[in-house]
């Protein structure tokens, strides 16, 4: 089980703030998770349609597409940050 969080317009497109998911063992990294999540609903597909516009964090640290993911991780997807 992984906990997936969505923020800003990614959250709006997915239609959820967070969800618990259990991807197959073939999903080993952030890029793999994005591909798998994209199949879950039209909202997910829309959110991840242009993955280069989305940033990720694994266990609350920014993560690149090749960053590993595993059961128990907290993975977040969001647009580039705009605070300050």
């Amino acid at each position: 089980m992984m906990r997936v969080l969505y923020f800003a317009w990614v959250r709006q497109k997915v239609g959820l703030g967070q969800e618990e998911v259990s991807p197959p063992p073939a999903v080993r990294d952030v890029a793999g998770l994005v591909a798998w999540l994209s199949e879950r609903s039209p909202g997910h597909a829309a959110a991840f349609a242009n993955a280069r516009t989305i940033r990720a964090a694994v266990n609350q640290d920014f993560a690149t597409p090749d960053h590993p993911v595993a059961a128990g991780d907290e993975i977040a997807f969001f647009p580039p940050v705009t605070g300050g």
Binding site: A57, F62, P80, V81, T82, G83, G84
Partner: peptide
């Protein structure tokens, strides 16, 4: 600090307008 806060802290701004429209600020 402010330069790094703007690019490395997970905040997102949404603009709300008087006519009810709303849009996310782009980086």
């Amino acid at each position: 600090l402010i330069d790094w806060l703007k690019t490395r802290a997970p905040f997102w701004k949404r603009e709300e307008f008087a006519d009810g429209a709303s849009r996310w600020v782009e980086a």
